[in-house]
Amino acid sequence: MKKFVRSRQLLKSGTSIGANVHKAQNAESKADFIHKIKIATKELEETKYWLILCEKSNSYPTHKNLSSKVNELGLILYKILSTSVKFRKEN
C-alpha cells in the first residue's frame, strides 16, 4: 500500500493543476482569476516534487518527457500569473 502513496499524490497534484486552470477560466473577478492561477502553480510545484521523488526511486518508472512538460507548463502559468498581476496593478 505504501508504494502507491507517491503515485497517488502525483496524480492528485497533477490533475489539480488542470482543474484550477479550468476554474480560473470562469473566475468571478481578476482577483479570483489570479488566486486560482496561484493555486494551480502551487499544485505544479507539488507535482514537480513528486516527480523528483519518483525519479530518485528505483521502484517507480520515470518518464523524462513528463518532467519537461511540467516545466513547460510552469513557464506558461508563471507568465500568465505575472501578466495578470501586472495588468491588475495598471488598472
Rank of each mutant, 00 (worst) to 15 (best):
M1P: 06
M1A: 03
M1Q: 04
K2E: 15
K2A: 15
K2L: 11
K3N: 05
K3R: 12
F4R: 03
F4M: 07
F4E: 01
F4V: 03
V5R: 05
V5G: 06
R6S: 09
S7H: 04
S7T: 11
S7Y: 01
R8A: 12
R8I: 01
Q9E: 13
Q9K: 07
L10W: 06
K12D: 13
K12E: 15
K12H: 12
S13C: 14
S13T: 10
G14C: 15
S16N: 08
S16E: 07
I17C: 08
I17Q: 02
I17S: 09
G18I: 02
G18R: 00
A19S: 11
N20W: 10
N20D: 05
V21Y: 05
K23P: 00
A24H: 08
N26F: 01
N26K: 07
A27H: 09
A27D: 09
A27V: 09
E28C: 10
S29T: 08
K30P: 04
K30G: 05
D32S: 11
F33V: 01
I34P: 11
I34E: 05
I34K: 04
I34S: 03
H35R: 12
K36C: 04
I37D: 04
I39P: 00
I39W: 01
I39A: 05
I39H: 01
I39F: 00
A40N: 08
A40C: 09
A40T: 00
A40M: 05
T41F: 03
K42F: 00
K42D: 00
L44I: 04
L44T: 05
E45A: 15
E45F: 08
E45Q: 13
E45T: 08
E46Q: 06
E46C: 01
E46S: 05
K48V: 07
Y49G: 11
Y49N: 11
W50P: 07
W50Y: 14
L51D: 01
L51H: 03
L51Q: 08
I52Q: 11
I52L: 08
I52M: 09
I52A: 10
L53D: 00
L53F: 07
C54L: 09
K56M: 12
K56C: 07
K56Y: 03
S57V: 10
S57W: 01
S59W: 02
S59E: 08
S59F: 11
Y60S: 15
Y60E: 14
P61R: 09
T62R: 03
T62A: 09
H63M: 07
N65V: 14
N65R: 11
L66S: 15
L66Y: 10
L66G: 05
L66H: 11
S67E: 10
S67Q: 15
S68F: 04
K69S: 09
V70Q: 11
V70I: 15
N71Y: 04
E72G: 11
L73H: 10
L73P: 10
L73M: 15
L73D: 03
G74T: 10
L75W: 03
L75D: 12
I76G: 00
L77G: 03
L77F: 04
L77T: 03
Y78T: 13
Y78N: 13
Y78H: 14
K79C: 02
K79H: 07
I80E: 00
S82C: 06
S82Y: 02
T83P: 01
S84Y: 03
S84T: 12
V85Q: 08
V85N: 02
K86W: 09
K86F: 14
F87D: 13
F87V: 12
F87Q: 15
R88Y: 14
R88I: 01
E90K: 14
E90F: 12
E90R: 12
N91D: 13
